[in-house]
Structure formats: C-alpha cells, structure tokens
Amino acid sequence: MVLPGGAWLFVFFLVPILFLASVSLQTGNIFDGFRLTWHFRNYVDAVQLYHVQFLRSLRYASIATAVTIVVSYPLAYWIAFRGGRHKTTFLFLLLLPFFVSFVIRTLAWQFILADDGIVLGPLKRWHLLPQSFHVLATSTAVIAGIAYNFLPFMALPLYVSLERIDRSVVEAAQDLYANKLEVFRRVIFPLSIPGVFAGVLLTFVPAMGDYVNASILGGTKTTMIGNIIQLEYLTNFHYPIAAALSFILMAVLLLGIFVYARVLGTRSIEEYV
C-alpha cells in the first residue's frame, strides 16, 4: 500500500514541488535559458516588489472568507434543519449558478453592477444614489466577487457538518434545559466546526490565489498576488520570480493552516468527524 501511494505522491506532488523550488532559485531569461544558481535573492525581490499585493490578497481573502461564513451559515443551517423533504432541491438551487463557468459568472456581475446598469441605473435616476456612486472597480467589488464565487465551497461543508448532527443530540440539549440560543451556541455550532474548518480552508486557499475577480471587478488598486504571478509568468517570462511568489504563497498558506489547525485542535475535530 505504501508503494503506489508513495509513487503517486512522488509523481504528482513531490516532483512538481521540487521543480517549482528549483525554478524559484534560478537565474536567467527565456532566451538564454534558466540555470539553478541558488539565487535566494529571488525571494527577497519577490517580497520587496510585491508585498503590497500579497498583504492585499491576504486581507481580501480573509474578509471574503468571513463574508462567506456569515452568508452561508444561515443558508446551510436552514437547508439542513428546515429543508425537510426538499433539501436536495434547495441544495441544487444553491449550486445552480455554479454550473456556469467562473469567468462568465463574474462577467455577469460586471454587467449587473455597471455604473448605469440595471441595478445602479434606476437608483441613480430616482436620486437614491449619487451620480458618482459605483460598485465596480472597488475593493468591495473584488471581495464580494470572491465571496460570491467561493460561496459553495463554504456552504457545502457547512451543510454536510450540520446535516450529520444527530437530531437526538439537539433534542437532548433541549431536554437538558437549553433554550434555542443555547442549543445553537453549546451544541450545534461546536458540532459544525469541522464544517467551518473545511469551509475556511476550501474558501481561503483559492481566494488567496484568485486573480479573476480582481481583473474583472477590480479597479486601479486591487491587484492581487494571483494577478502578479500570472503577469510574471505569462507576460514577463520571469519564471523564477513567479515560482518564488508561488512558493511564498504556498508557504504562507501552509503555515496559516498549521496555526489554524493548532488553534482549533485537529484532534478534537477528528474525534467527532
């Protein structure tokens, strides 16, 4: 059992990672080729040049993740506990928009939220909003776009964790003098933490690396680290810098996950999964 698993890890994880690590320490250009020179300076350069976009991505991804929790928790809760026979239908409805491609969905928002579009246009004509008001090309739009696009990644694990809570445990809490609020606070919420944990990972990690929302919904100061990696790789052919940025991103995410798991305690999570 170790061998196929090990081979799988080697081919699909270790080799690409080592390749990336190697590229991040190379110097050269696309014409003369890149050579491994152990150029750790690439990392320093990457941070010096792009720490602004890095911190911005961190901020956007954090806020967007928080927003997805706030939006999808009641939704998942309602479907899991009040959905009754139609749970599957509600879940399907929740997922329906996500059958459309990521980019198209985001472009649709660009159309919907246009300055004189179908939402803001009438509001401005009725003088409910100032003429200069706009949603697009702001960091709010980028964060909202990320939150929207990754909503199912939060809602589904939340739903699963809420759905699998034994209903008799909820009744036991009621039986033991817990009112509705206490039932939620003492029993339902703690038992849904594995779902929150999974949802945060599934949302935060891709949100951190996202570049579509920033490029479609963003403005002049909303460039995220994903856009930079794309630019450095595809346009500038600075493979080492792009690789270094990817590595830093990965390291930050891994460290974050590690700390996060420590704080929440994976052991206790495993226990009731």
């Binding site: 008799s168 009744e171 036991a172 033991l176």
Partner: peptide
C-alpha cells in the same frame, strides 16, 4: 417547551454531546 419541563430523557442512541467530556455532558443540564 422541552427545556421548561422538569423531565429528562435517556435517548435510545444515548445522544451524548460528542464534543464535550463526560463531565461536561453530565454537567450540561
């Protein structure tokens, strides 16, 4: 409502709170 009644139930599936220790389970009420 159940939480206002002075009765307690032992459930068929026990319905222990999986995230709480034995002490916290018993102390819940």
């Amino acid at each position: 409502a159940p939480y206002r009644r002075n009765v307690n139930t032992v459930f068929q599936s026990y319905a222990l709170f999986p995230h709480l220790t034995v002490f916290d389970n018993v102390a819940f009420g």
